[in-house]
Nucleic acid binder design. Structure first.
Lengths: 257, 257
DNA sequence: AGATTATGGTTCTATTATAGAAACATGTGA
DNA sequence: TCACATGTTTCTATAATAGAACCATAATCT
């Protein structure tokens, strides 16, 4: 059905992340429990195409410049900088916290655009960050609007705690999502990272399927009090409305699944 | 020696570029002269890993969000924004033209950082752009400092004209490179694009091998007159010196070949 | 409306590329 | 000097892939 060789190779790529940016052949082979010959062939083939480079001194491999090219092509395709980013910046300036646009991609949310708070203490993640849909305001906002069978896929797939506050009980999660869907926004504290709050609202394509979310996030000690939360929701929903208008106008299409 | 399946698959990826961002299965198979079954298996495998996504309506494939993730990891690794970009912005403000940092990657130069001119008419390319080393100021600056055998590889590999002014005669190119190496900078007009001038200087790693270049580029009608060129070279070399100091300090390592 | 010709997707098996062990070359630390 | 790392290469049984043929479906032409 699928190509096993390519499948394995892409699996190998996944081991190159921020925590482990460089790998030696045997080192990675041991980590993956695969023969080092196989890893060697995969790494050298990627290298020949510029997706990996080998440090000539340490002989270890790391991500190559080819990814810069493809990454930029995806960014250009999204073309969020021109119209969406100013809206996000506006929200960020108003609430004095960072604002994120998160895209639905399979069973993950991917951060595709960021408007950072001007404050010195702020929540900060980098573009391309990938988070399971059951964790945090930006992701749960999207998951809440998925059809039941896709929710089930996610809960069945097994859930891990990022913090003690991450909800991993399927029933508790589904009840939470139900509430989020009804009220149209999601407020969380400490689910994604210990000292962070998040407030998210969903964005839809022209078929009313959820495709993204807009989220405010900041340090937990600045989280809005209950009486000020409606105000923040208002600002966020106003920004989301403007972005939604842009999506609708250009019949925004970045497909999921 | 190398993995043929992976090799083919990465070759398929190359067909997804700015000019042709979306491909149908049979369409791409015809373009590559390969059975559509093969292409189908490759595309679906990439899709399962998020490197491609299929538009559920048109059934065509395009680049997926996974590249955003890897692209950002490479950007983070380069970490040019903090120290190098301010230097580039400084140069850009002084000369009132765009400034580019280009990385050596095999037989290409890759744009890795940009400081745009504040002028309304300016030369503009996007990050990740890949250009053969024999074309334009930013690339020839680097090629000039390569060992003779690598120059030969490039000239032997066949050269195409991007504009009528692109030098494609091996002897003429080598003579040009000789001059560039001696004077330490490269000034070109119309080689990369018809109405563009460029002025580049090289950057080296701690083994005195060329790894990058710093380039000023702008519309040809604003190109410096002969008596004002030395001034521009000065500004550029001063910026390059500061960047070079940063490279040396952090024993900058992004390997080529 | 029926025929034609596209498309994406599936199945099958001869062929071929790959897996994985073993060996090799080189470097390093004991 | 020996032992044990490392990346790299070679070999062949075996398993995965190539590629033709086919299916289902949608659009287009007659």
């Amino acid at each position: 059905m699928t190509l096993k060789t390519l499948d394995n190779s892409l699996e190998v790529l996944k081991y190159f992340n921020k925590e482990n940016p460089t790998w030696g052949v045997r080192e990675l082979a041991k980590e993956m429990n695969i023969s080092h010959s196989i890893i060697y062939r995969i790494l050298t083939t990627f290298e020949q195409h510029g997706f990996l480079i080998q440090n000539p001194e340490t002989k270890k491999y790391e991500l190559g410049l080819r990814f810069l090219e493809y990454g930029q092509m995806v960014r250009d395709k999204l073309n969020l900088s021109d119209f969406v980013l100013p809206i996000m910046k506006n929200v960020a300036d108003t609430v004095k916290e960072s604002v994120f646009l998160t895209w639905l991609d399979g069973t993950d949310g991917v951060t595709v655009e960021i408007a950072e708070s001007s404050q010195t203490i702020k929540f900060s993640v980098s573009i391309g960050t990938r988070t399971p849909l059951y964790i945090g305001a930006s992701c749960k906002t999207m998951m809440a609007f998925l059809p039941a069978e896709r929710k089930k896929e996610i809960t069945d797939h097994g859930m891990k705690k990022l913090t003690p506050d991450t909800i991993t009980d399927p029933d508790a999660l589904l009840a939470d999502l139900e509430k989020i869907q009804q009220q149209g926004w999601c407020f969380t504290t400490g689910e994604y990272a210990h000292s962070v709050f998040g407030l998210g609202v969903p964005l839809f394509n022209n078929k009313r399927e959820v495709i993204a979310s807009l989220t405010i996030a900041g340090p937990i000690y600045r989280k809005p009090t209950e009486d000020r939360l409606p105000e923040m929701i208002n600002v966020l929903q106003y920004g989301a409305m403007n972005i939604q208008r842009y999506f609708d106008q250009y019949s925004f299409k970045l497909y999921h699944e």
